[in-house]
Nucleic acid binder design. Structure first.
Length: 439
RNA sequence: UGGGGCGUAGCCAAGUGGUAAGGCACCGGGUUUUGAUCCCGGCAUGCGCAGGUUCGAAUCCUGCCGCCCCAGCCA
């Protein structure tokens, strides 16, 4: 039992390059120590008055072996036992013993505990344990574009930078689940990155790939427009509605068949129209023809703008011969875009996520909260095809061409809310990016 | 300048004396009513560096270099 103050203990410990020296209490007779320990347990002393230490070697090159603390006084209130217990073991003292009692064979932990293993082993050797566990250390998982330490994540929650531990932007299991990450995709990700002792940071793209791979195989396809602009078909019979039958699977003969209403006024994705389109642009532009998925070919005639210059309506004509998405003359259209009939559309809140931080390594700045990405969440007022009303909270679907979305687990009572789990791979964006870099 | 770890491609990672797996990313091409998926091809004359041992070295030896962790009565 040592009665040195915390400050003195630190002084006696030495430094990594200089040995420490023995506490003046080190040779206290056992009976006296036992008595002190009993009284400490009985609550006779205030916090820090004395402490139980292991007698090992104050000159040991490993600082953890320089007479480490084992039991200290903490007058902490416990929700079950109240104030009756006031002494607590250190992590090092408890670790090996609890492993031994639980029959643990391989006690796996992270690299920073490597220096503690000699103490872990020393305690097991010197204490009456029922079994000898072995501690094995591995590198922790780090991911680009986020932080992983519990202490940092806690700050994000406490300081309200996110909505809670299950905010879909959090790299927590509950956050990933709410984002729409399946258990299978997370497991497959873990298989892919492996386990080693190398300090490493895995690229986020690998996590995203694992999700896409799983959802590509499982998620039914529907149509939803996230950033809507109105498309009017000038030669469509007024008030006419057609219903198309389409499968939710891209694979012939698989999936469920549901009906999709089509009419003369649709919502399409704002980004699917471009005024000055390059030659390789396959979507809508003045005088260009595209296929409306499952339905008809339409040719763009004009775009109508408001006073601010924003496009409010795109006017097209359709080819009645192209019903179903093919024409008798066999002419090809390069682009196929998704749509939702305006009259039948389900309004929905669609949440699009970006990385929580604005850089690959948020730890490179002094305070990681200054590296938060202000655009990590974008809330859209979108429109969905009617069949999407049947999707249960927590279920994943693909919105054609827009990515994989998961109906939010919370907010299940009110209007439809969908979280985007991950976008689809976007080769067009890549082409545009590469071209810009060439110029 | 003490001790404990780790260095194989842009990012992960196999490999333990027989001539550098695999995945992601990236780059080409094909198929496609999702610019998705799928398919085909490319991507380390080289394993932190320098010597040495060996018929043969990422693997063994020696010496360097770089990065991470440790001076809580935190975990």
């Amino acid at each position: 039992m040592d009665e040195l103050s915390a400050e003195d203990i630190r002084r006696y410990r030495g430094t990594p390059t200089e040995p420490g020296s023995n506490s003046p209490w080190r040779d206290r007779p056992r009976e006296e120590s036992l008595d002190l320990f009993r009284r400490m347990r009985a609550g006779e002393f205030p916090d820090g008055h004395c402490i139980l230490r292991a007698k090992i070697d104050m000159a040991h090159p490993n600082i953890n072996m320089r007479d480490p603390a084992l039991y200290r006084i903490r007058h902490a209130h416990h929700h079950r036992t109240g104030d009756q217990w006031c002494i607590y073991p250190t992590y090092d003292f408890a670790h090996g013993q609890s492993d031994a009692i639980e029959g643990i064979t391989h006690s796996i932990c992270t690299l920073e505990f490597e220096n503690h293993r000699p103490l872990y082993d020393w305690l097991l050797e010197h204490l009456p344990v029922p079994h000898r566990p072995r501690q094995i250390e591995f590198a922790r998982l780090n991911l680009t574009w986020t932080v992983m330490s519990k202490r940092k994540l806690l700050r994000l929650v406490q300081e309200k930078y996110v909505d809670g531990w299950d905010d879909p932007r959090m790299p927590t299991i509950s956050g990933l689940r709410r984002r729409g990450y399946s258990a299978a995709s997370i497991r497959e990700f873990c298989n892919r990155i492996g386990v080693s002792k190398t300090n490493s940071t895995v690229e986020l793209s690998l996590l995203e790939f694992s999700l896409r791979e799983d959802l590509n195989a499982r998620a039914p396809r529907y149509m939803g427009v996230t950033d809507p602009v109105r498309l009017v078909i000038e030669n469509w019979p007024r008030g006419h509605v057609e219903w198309f039958e389409a499968s939710t699977s891209p694979v012939e003969g698989e999936g469920l068949v549901r009906k999709i209403p089509f009419s003369g006024e649709l919502w399409i994705e704002r980004e699917d129209y471009l005024e000055d389109a390059p030659r390789k642009w396959f979507r809508l532009a003045p005088d260009r023809e595209v296929r409306l998925k499952f339905a008809y070919y339409v040719t763009c005639r004009e775009a109508i703008r408001d006073e601010t210059g924003e496009i409010t309506e795109i006017r097209c004509t359709y080819d009645p011969e192209s019903r179903g998405g093919d024409t008798p003359d066999g002419r090809k259209v390069k682009g196929t875009i998704h749509w939702v009939s305006a009259e039948h559309a389900l309004p929905a809140e669609i949440r699009l996520y970006d990385t929580l931080f604005d850089r690959e390594n948020p730890e490179e700045v002094d305070d990681f909260t200054t590296a938060l990405n202000p655009d990590s969440l974008r809330i859209c007022e979108g429109f969905l095809e009617p069949a999407l009303a049947e999707i249960a909270p927590g279920d994943s679907v693909q919105f054609l061409r827009m990515g994989y979305f998961c109906r939010d687990l919370k907010n299940s009572a009110g209007p439809l809310v969908f979280n985007r789990s991950v976008s689809l791979k976007d080769n067009w964006a890549r082409i545009v990016r590469n071209k810009r870099e060439d110029e």
